[in-house]
């Protein structure tokens, strides 16, 4: 893996026009994903993780826009590209799948229509060749008797199968990056695991960089190489999965880990982070997490902590938990 990463997001800020004026939903977010690498983007709902995914795709709705920062896909800057130029890359170099498989596919169009239009959007190929590609794409995601299922409508598939269809469509052109916005949340637990490993395998085989957006740290921990934790529109901590799980530096990360149901502590009450994610219109001053934080001090309510880099990790906290990070604070 050499040269530019598949996707590199730097200092990305996103704002929405609302009745309360322009509200910033994402502040200066940076991350990168290499080919075949998996990044977990973790946070509660409202943290800005899905909006980040949509912004990278250039699919923000009319009220939202990127206010600053850069999104480089295979070394090409996407911010500022025309819709037409973005369209050429969408589905070919970068794809996205969504949470609810029952709404991702157009209910009134046949499956083959929806697959073939995705193929012909980027490639010239005959109807026959397109059908053959469609069949093999369905085969690859484990849909039984794909040739017959091709003429069915989405509602004739189960939830898990529909998500597989969406994955098959998203990966048709072997994109460099796949953004997966909680694609397993709406599925049954057993199906979840199947789909999860399916995506992981396909992405690895094709060398597709995966951005896995989830509120569930336990899903991400088994899947991702690196994790970025988001809170109130900011990445508060990044690092490798192993580092973050064993030695979280941000109290929020630590809270998320504690709230994962674990085998070791069966029967013990589940830890929860008190309070709730602030709404965009009412983000507290200073560190936005301070009202919910057990370690907050006076400075937390006054100043936004600067990102602090140590080893290959970054944390945004006045009182980081990890020993290495504390050492870094003292020396700074």
């Amino acid at each position: 893996m050499s040269g530019a990463p598949a996707l590199e997001v730097t200092d990305l800020s996103i704002a929405f026009q609302s009745r309360h004026g322009l509200l910033t939903a994402v502040h200066g977010v940076s991350f990168s994903v290499g080919r075949g690498e998996v990044l977990g983007l973790v946070g509660e709902s409202g943290s800005g993780k899905s909006v980040t995914g949509l912004a990278v795709m250039g699919l923000l709705d009319a009220a939202g826009r990127i206010t600053s920062g850069s999104v480089r896909l295979l070394g090409t800057e996407l911010v500022g590209l025309s819709e037409r130029q973005l369209r050429k890359r969408r589905g070919r170099d970068i794809s996205m799948i969504f949470q609810d498989p029952s709404t991702t596919l157009n209910p009134v169009l046949r499956v083959d229509t929806q697959i073939i239009e995705a193929l012909t959007a980027h490639e010239r190929l005959s109807q026959k060749a397109a059908r053959a590609r469609a069949v093999s794409a369905l085969e690859a995601v484990g849909i039984p008797s794909p040739a017959e299922r091709l003429t069915a409508y989405p509602h004739q598939f189960s939830g898990g199968m529909r998500q597989r269809l969406a994955i098959a469509i998203a990966l048709l052109h072997r994109p460099a990056v796949l953004i997966a916005d909680e694609p397993t949340t709406a599925l049954d637990v057993t199906i979840q695991a199947q789909v999860l490993s399916e995506v992981q395998k396909l992405a690895a085989d094709q060398g597709t960089g995966l951005v896995w957006i989830s509120h569930d740290l336990s899903v991400v921990s088994g899947l991702a190489d690196r994790v970025a934790v988001m809170y109130a529109g900011r990445i508060v901590e990044t690092g490798s999965v192993a580092d973050i799980l064993t030695d979280p530096a941000h109290p929020y990360t630590s809270g998320l880990i504690a709230s994962v149901p674990s085998r070791n502590r069966r029967g013990s009450p589940l830890a929860q982070i008190r309070g709730a994610m602030p709404s965009l219109a009412a983000v507290p001053p200073g560190c936005p997490f301070h009202p919910r934080c057990d370690f907050a001090s006076g400075i937390c309510a006054r100043a936004m902590p600067e990102p602090l880099a140590f080893a290959d990790r970054i944390v945004r906290c006045h009182h980081p938990l990890a020993a290495a990070a504390r050492a870094e604070t003292l020396s700074a």
């Binding site: 819709e83 991702t104 239009e117 959007a121």
Partner: peptide
């Protein structure tokens, strides 16, 4: 327009003409 499948269709790189004439029209024709 607010449905995920339109987002997904745009995510596939479809042209606006195709999205309007096929994905939207077929739904509202009902």
């Amino acid at each position: 327009m607010s449905q995920d499948y339109i987002r997904f269709a745009r995510g596939k790189g479809l042209s606006p003409a195709r999205i309007v004439c096929v994905h939207i029209l077929k739904n509202i024709l009902i």
